Amino acid sequence: PKDQAKKEIEKALRNGDEEKAKRLAKKYGISDDDWKELKKRVS
């Protein structure tokens, strides 16, 4: 599910692991808009 994916990506971003977050986003098909939203929430 997308919500689970977003949680994992957000966690990776919080850990400062943007490479992992990007890989997860690609793997789960997270859209650019969702990606920006996640980045905003974390920063």
Score class of each variant (00 low, 15 high):
residue 12 A to C: 06
residue 31 S to E: 05
residue 7 K to S: 12
residue 42 V to E: 03
residue 11 K to I: 14
residue 15 N to I: 09
residue 26 K to A: 12
residue 4 Q to N: 12
residue 43 S to G: 12
residue 38 L to F: 03
residue 10 E to A: 07
residue 29 G to M: 08
residue 13 L to P: 00
residue 2 K to G: 12
residue 29 G to Y: 04
residue 8 E to R: 07
residue 32 D to V: 08
residue 32 D to C: 09
residue 1 P to S: 14
residue 6 K to H: 12
residue 37 E to V: 03
residue 2 K to R: 12
residue 3 D to S: 10
residue 28 Y to S: 06
residue 29 G to C: 11
residue 11 K to V: 12
residue 9 I to A: 02
residue 36 K to Y: 13
residue 25 A to L: 03
residue 38 L to A: 03
residue 39 K to I: 15
residue 19 E to A: 11
residue 42 V to T: 08
residue 8 E to D: 08
residue 1 P to W: 12
residue 40 K to F: 07
residue 28 Y to K: 02
residue 14 R to D: 03
residue 41 R to Q: 11
residue 9 I to C: 03
residue 3 D to K: 09
residue 31 S to Q: 04
residue 43 S to N: 12
residue 4 Q to A: 13
residue 18 E to L: 11
residue 11 K to G: 08
residue 26 K to T: 10
residue 32 D to T: 06
residue 31 S to Y: 02
residue 9 I to N: 00
residue 41 R to L: 14
residue 23 R to I: 12
residue 16 G to W: 03
residue 38 L to V: 07
residue 6 K to D: 05
residue 12 A to N: 03
residue 17 D to T: 02
residue 36 K to A: 12
residue 13 L to Q: 01
residue 8 E to M: 11
residue 31 S to A: 05
residue 36 K to F: 14
residue 21 A to N: 00
residue 9 I to P: 00
residue 18 E to V: 13
residue 17 D to P: 01
residue 3 D to N: 10
residue 6 K to I: 15
residue 28 Y to I: 07
residue 21 A to C: 01
residue 41 R to N: 12
residue 10 E to C: 03
residue 40 K to A: 12
residue 27 K to D: 15
residue 40 K to I: 08
residue 34 D to A: 07
residue 42 V to K: 02
residue 25 A to M: 05
residue 43 S to I: 12
residue 22 K to R: 13
residue 18 E to P: 05
residue 23 R to A: 14
residue 40 K to W: 07
residue 17 D to R: 04
residue 11 K to N: 14
residue 26 K to N: 12
residue 6 K to G: 05
residue 42 V to N: 06
residue 28 Y to P: 01
residue 30 I to C: 04
residue 40 K to N: 14
residue 21 A to L: 02
residue 36 K to H: 12
residue 10 E to V: 11
residue 18 E to Q: 07
residue 6 K to F: 15
residue 12 A to E: 05
residue 4 Q to E: 13
residue 15 N to P: 00
residue 2 K to L: 15
residue 21 A to W: 01
residue 10 E to H: 04
residue 10 E to P: 00
residue 32 D to L: 08
residue 6 K to L: 15
residue 16 G to F: 04
residue 34 D to P: 00
residue 35 W to T: 02
residue 37 E to G: 04
residue 8 E to K: 06
residue 20 K to L: 15
residue 39 K to A: 08
residue 19 E to S: 08
residue 37 E to K: 07
residue 40 K to M: 08
residue 21 A to R: 00
residue 3 D to Q: 11
residue 18 E to H: 09
residue 9 I to V: 09
residue 40 K to H: 13
residue 22 K to P: 00
residue 26 K to V: 12
residue 34 D to Q: 08
residue 35 W to M: 13
residue 5 A to Q: 13
residue 19 E to T: 07
residue 33 D to N: 08
residue 16 G to T: 02
residue 5 A to E: 11
residue 29 G to V: 03
residue 14 R to M: 09
residue 37 E to F: 04
residue 38 L to G: 01
residue 39 K to H: 10
residue 42 V to D: 03
residue 6 K to P: 03
residue 39 K to Y: 06
residue 17 D to Y: 10
residue 10 E to I: 15
residue 7 K to F: 09
residue 33 D to R: 06
residue 4 Q to P: 07
residue 34 D to E: 15
residue 42 V to W: 03
residue 42 V to A: 10
residue 2 K to W: 10
residue 40 K to V: 08
residue 15 N to S: 13
residue 8 E to Q: 09
residue 17 D to N: 09
residue 32 D to G: 06
residue 40 K to C: 09
residue 6 K to V: 15
residue 2 K to I: 14
residue 15 N to R: 09
residue 26 K to I: 14
residue 26 K to E: 15
residue 8 E to T: 05
residue 41 R to V: 10
residue 14 R to W: 06
residue 23 R to Y: 11
residue 16 G to R: 04
residue 32 D to M: 09
residue 31 S to D: 09
residue 4 Q to C: 11
residue 18 E to K: 04
residue 39 K to M: 12
residue 20 K to P: 01
residue 24 L to P: 00
residue 5 A to H: 12
residue 7 K to E: 13
residue 32 D to E: 14
residue 19 E to V: 09
residue 14 R to L: 11
residue 39 K to F: 04
residue 1 P to L: 15
residue 14 R to E: 05
residue 3 D to H: 11
residue 30 I to R: 00
residue 40 K to S: 13
residue 35 W to K: 01
residue 36 K to G: 07
residue 2 K to T: 13
residue 27 K to V: 09
residue 34 D to R: 02
residue 3 D to A: 13
residue 36 K to P: 02
residue 37 E to M: 06
residue 20 K to E: 15
residue 1 P to K: 13
residue 23 R to P: 00
residue 1 P to M: 14
residue 39 K to G: 03
residue 27 K to F: 13
residue 28 Y to W: 07
residue 12 A to F: 06
residue 16 G to K: 05
residue 9 I to Y: 01
residue 24 L to C: 02
residue 20 K to D: 08
residue 22 K to L: 14
residue 39 K to C: 06
residue 28 Y to T: 04
residue 28 Y to G: 03
residue 16 G to E: 03
residue 41 R to I: 12
residue 21 A to S: 03
residue 18 E to R: 05
residue 28 Y to A: 12
residue 20 K to I: 09
residue 18 E to G: 05
residue 21 A to P: 00
residue 35 W to Y: 15
residue 19 E to W: 05
residue 23 R to D: 13
residue 19 E to H: 07
residue 38 L to K: 01
residue 16 G to A: 04
residue 40 K to Y: 06
residue 40 K to G: 08
residue 15 N to F: 06
residue 39 K to R: 09
residue 21 A to V: 02
residue 23 R to S: 12
residue 37 E to H: 04
residue 30 I to Y: 07
residue 14 R to H: 06
residue 43 S to Q: 14
residue 30 I to M: 13
residue 5 A to F: 11
residue 10 E to N: 03
residue 24 L to W: 02
residue 29 G to N: 12
residue 36 K to I: 14
residue 8 E to S: 05
residue 34 D to K: 03
residue 13 L to F: 03
residue 22 K to Q: 10
residue 33 D to I: 09
residue 41 R to G: 10
residue 14 R to K: 08
residue 15 N to D: 15
residue 20 K to R: 11
residue 32 D to Y: 13
residue 23 R to E: 15
residue 23 R to C: 10
residue 23 R to L: 13
residue 34 D to Y: 04
residue 11 K to F: 07
residue 19 E to R: 09
residue 1 P to N: 15
residue 1 P to F: 13
residue 17 D to A: 04
residue 15 N to K: 10
residue 23 R to T: 10
residue 40 K to R: 12
residue 34 D to T: 06
residue 38 L to Q: 02
residue 42 V to I: 13
residue 42 V to M: 08
residue 24 L to D: 02
residue 3 D to I: 11
residue 18 E to I: 13
residue 1 P to H: 14
residue 13 L to D: 00
residue 11 K to D: 15
residue 8 E to N: 04
